[in-house]
Computed example of a mutant assay.
Amino acid sequence: MPAPHATSHACPIRDVLDRVGDAWSVLVITELNKGPCRFNALRRVVDGISQRMLAVTLRQLERDGLVSRRVTDGRPPQVTYGLTARGVSLHAALAPLADWAARHQQAIRDSRAAFEATQALAA
Rank of each mutant, 00 (worst) to 15 (best):
A117C: 01
M53Y: 01
S50K: 08
G74V: 10
S89Q: 14
L61I: 03
A93F: 04
T57K: 07
V45I: 12
C37V: 02
A98R: 14
H104Y: 11
A102H: 07
R86N: 14
S50Y: 06
A98T: 05
Y81T: 04
L58R: 01
L94A: 10
G82N: 01
T30M: 02
L32G: 06
S50C: 03
E31F: 07
F39A: 00
V56I: 15
T30V: 00
L54Q: 08
G48Q: 04
I29L: 15
V46N: 07
P36N: 04
R38I: 02
Q105H: 15
T72V: 13
R59T: 11
G35S: 06
L66Y: 08
I49F: 00
G35N: 04
G74E: 13
T84R: 11
G82K: 00
V88C: 07
T72K: 10
Q106M: 09
T118W: 09
R112A: 15
A113Q: 15
R52I: 07
G74R: 08
T72S: 14
V88I: 12
G74P: 11
Q60L: 08
Q105F: 03
L58C: 01
L58T: 00
H104M: 06
S111N: 15
V46I: 12
A114V: 02
V67W: 07
G74Y: 05
V28N: 07
Y81Q: 04
C37D: 02
R75G: 01
L83N: 05
A114F: 02
D110K: 07
A114E: 12
S68G: 06
L83Y: 02
P77K: 03
A117N: 13
V26D: 08
A95K: 14
R70S: 08
R44F: 00
G87N: 00
R70W: 03
V88A: 10
G48E: 09
R75E: 11
L32F: 14
G74W: 06
S111F: 06
D99E: 15
E62C: 09
L66E: 09
T84Y: 10
T30E: 13
S50L: 06
G74A: 13
R52A: 12
L97M: 12
S50I: 04
D110L: 09
R86Y: 00
A98G: 11
L42C: 09
A113E: 14
A114K: 15
R69P: 02
T118H: 09
F115Y: 15
K34S: 07
A85S: 14
Q60H: 13
E62H: 13
S89G: 02
T84E: 04
V88D: 07
T118Y: 03
A41H: 12
M53R: 02
N40V: 06
R103D: 10
R52V: 12
F115E: 15
A113Y: 02
G82V: 00
R52E: 10
V88S: 04
A101L: 11
V79N: 05
T30F: 00
I49H: 02
S111R: 15
K34T: 11
V79C: 12
T72H: 12
F39K: 11
V71Q: 11
A55Q: 13
R70T: 14
A92P: 00
G35V: 03
Y81N: 05
A98Q: 13
R70G: 01
Q106G: 03
G35L: 02
V88Y: 03
M53A: 06
D64R: 11
P76T: 10
A114I: 01
A102P: 00
D47I: 04
A93L: 15
R109I: 02
T118M: 11
A92S: 15
R43C: 05
K34Y: 01
T118L: 09
Q105I: 05
W100V: 03
